[in-house]
Design a protein around this nucleic acid. Structure first.
Length: 592
RNA sequence: CGGGGUGUAGCUCAGUUUGGUAGAGCGCUUGGUUCGGGACCAAGAGGCCGCAGGUUCGAAUCCUGUCACCCCGACCA
């Protein structure tokens, strides 16, 4: 393909509103242009990469026994009313009316459509299991779209839905998809990790996120590794179980007493004022879990995790109490604590403490009266929480509740998510099949998503440098940047010959045939980020060689190869890069 | 949804405080010289100063409203 014929509007200057690397580089390399907040046009180079990601997904899902279909992007409201999500979903669901005034939505996901389809078309256990997927543009009216394609409103997603006769078969398919996902991201050439995750509003009770590892990732994850550094357990921090540190209870040395702490309401202020570490100040956070007020207590250097709290208390909805609501309950926001509560307040509020406070002495706690805190508080002597649970967000250094190893931490970009759904949607939508026992049963379902556009963005977050993108070979828009240098016609003639030979071998070549100075071409090609760069012309051609350099290599690592060996050498390099990713996929699968 | 900010040429931004006929750099067009890491000279094209009202002899600039976009937070995945 000739550069001069392609629409690749690169820009030198960094666009003002791009704050993350993928957004900035996609704009600069001429991949995307914004049409509205969170809505982008995908230019040819972006389209090529998206197609590659989508095709890897197709190959692996087909191999895993799923089948592709395409559902409508526009869906009637009735379906969503049936599942209950018409009310549940907030303004994120884009709703509109057609000319007759009937309600419609643009699909953010397709559980309803697929369940309705299968309900109507699949009647017998003999037709199960079934795994159906599509790759399609979705729309979620995000409260705050940002970071370009990382969190857009419109995005391309692969969504798959599976239907089974029982839990066991659905779990088998879950494992099957988990394996397929591992192969997909390995084949994309990405460093990633599958982590246990919360099921959120989609529901269900088993879920893993696939996280592309990148420091700029929005998600925090923790993991433990074996002696050889292979991950044993990994989870989203909001879910990762923490084991209480093993230690002897501390012996209190002084009696508890009440001290003045005027206008010191935050943990930091109190700790500084009293000259203690924040980890010695009890943090008491007030929540409403369903309709029950809850005081959750942890150490001051930690945060209460609402997902864990919800599970510990056994509620469905969690929100923080406002100061006014706290006061109405007889509490003193800013000065609340689990110690010395009046009996009528204690009767109304459920107190639950994090396991991290167990056996500690010399603590500071809210005085439950204005402008006072208690010091020298000892757990077990001055107060005994009626309940203890693992309530805080996991962090590096915590002990894993699964295997007792110490957690390490990383940041990730969620590019895939697998859910075991159970019968949530099939029950709500009365989608049943007739079983071998002649009775009607709701399908047991799973759902499995991959953000195609987000995967491309994540690949850039993980693979770039100051000069531009460094595409992993399997998803690069072209395998080779062939840069013709100088003004002599023989350089261009040779470049065209090499281009033709490589294309004949199935290698994708971007031939930079523009009438530009070498510096301009090098800069643009670095920005675009094809994995292999070949320079033809100038000094090296006079010596009878072409220059081959990987995008990730330095100038000093450039290989000078005789002209007649150029094609074979380039092809070998490209094929080896592509083979590495396939090997990584086999390896990822074997390790499970 | 709360807080903050910005809308001026295709892009990055001056100009707004103190009202007086619209600016720079990059990009684009033409000609010439250059040609291994974003060249140089010359000549050009290009703006309803987000939109709507208002104040004024006169508004990019002051006032009111409105829309869009960005950042932080909350939310979500």
């Amino acid at each position: 393909m000739r550069y001069s014929k392609l629409l690749i509007p690169t820009v030198k200057e960094t666009p003002a509103d791009a704050v993350v690397a993928s957004h900035r580089l996609m704009l600069r390399s001429g991949m995307i242009r914004k049409l509205a907040a969170g809505i982008y046009t995908y230019l040819p180079m972006a389209n090529r990469t998206f197609t590659k990601v989508a095709n890897i997904i197709r190959e692996e899902l087909n191999r895993a026994g799923a089948q592709e279909l395409t559902m409508p992007a526009v869906q009637p409201a009735e379906l969503w009313q049936e599942s209950g999500r018409w009310e549940q979903y907030g303004p994120e669901l884009l709703r509109f009316k057609d000319r007759k005034g009937a309600d419609f939505i643009i699909g953010p996901t397709h559980e309803e459509v697929i369940t309705a389809l299968v309900r109507d078309e699949v009647k017998s256990y003999k037709q199960l299991p079934l795994n159906l997927y599509q790759i399609q543009t979705k729309f979620r009216d995000e409260v705050r779209p940002r970071f370009g394609l990382m969190r857009g409103r419109e995005f391309v997603m692969k969504d798959a839905y599976s239907f089974h006769v029982d839990d066991a078969d659905a779990h088998r398919e879950y494992d099957n998809m988990y394996r397929a996902y591992s192969r997909i991201f390995a084949r994309c050439g990405l460093r990633f990790r599958a982590v246990e995750a919360d099921t959120g509003s989609i529901g269900g009770n088993r879920s893993h996120e696939f996280q592309v590892l990148a420091d700029s990732g929005e998600d925090a994850i923790v993991f433990t590794v074996d002696e050889e550094g292979r991950p044993i357990y990994a989870a989203n921090v909001e879910l990762a179980p923490i084991k209480a540190p093993e230690r002897q209870p501390e012996t209190p040395t002084m009696a508890m007493c009440l001290v003045d702490t005027p206008h010191k309401k935050t943990i930091d202020d109190v700790a500084r004022f009293l000259g203690v570490e924040t980890s010695r100040v009890l943090k008491a956070v007030l929540f409403m879990v369903d309709d029950q007020p809850v005081m959750a207590v942890c150490l001051g250097d930690r945060d209460i995790n609402e997902v864990k709290l919800k599970k510990a208390v056994g509620g469905a909805e969690v929100r923080m109490l406002t100061d006014e609501e706290g006061k109405a309950l007889g509490l003193h926001p800013g000065y609340t604590g689990p110690v010395g509560l009046s009996p009528d307040v204690a009767a109304k509020v459920t107190i639950i403490a994090d396991i991290g406070v167990q056996g500690l002495a010399g603590l500071v706690a809210g005085g439950n009266t204005w402008n006072k805190h208690l010091v020298q508080v000892a757990e077990g002597r001055d107060f005994t929480p009626p309940r203890m649970a693992d309530l805080t967000t996991a962090q590096k250094g915590d002990v894993c509740g699964k295997n007792g190893l110490v957690y390490d931490a990383a940041r990730g970009i969620e590019v895939g998510h697998v859910f075991f759904l159970g019968t949530k949607y099939s029950s709500a939508m009365k989608a049943t099949f007739q079983g071998e026992d002649k009775a009607e049963h709701p399908y047991v379902m799973g759902c499995y998503g991959i953000g195609v556009t987000r995967t491309a963005a994540a690949a850039i977050e993980q693979n770039h440098d100051d000069d531009g993108i460094c595409w992993p070979a399997p998803i690069a828009p072209f395998h080779v940047s062939l840069v013709a240098l100088g003004v002599e016609a023989d350089a261009m003639d040779l470049a065209i010959k090499i281009e033709g030979a490589l294309e004949g071998m199935g290698i994708e070549v971007l031939l930079d045939d523009r009438d530009e100075r070498p510096g301009v071409k090098f800069k643009d090609n670095d920005l675009i980020g094809c994995p292999v760069r070949v320079a033809v012309g100038g000094k090296s051609l006079k010596e009878g060689v072409v220059e081959i350099k990987l995008r990730t290599e330095t100038k000093e690592q450039t290989r000078k190869v005789p002209v007649q060996e150029a094609v074979a050498t380039i092809a070998a390099i490209v094929n080896s890069l592509l083979a590495d990713a396939k090997a990584a996929a086999d390896d990822a699968e074997k390790r499970m």
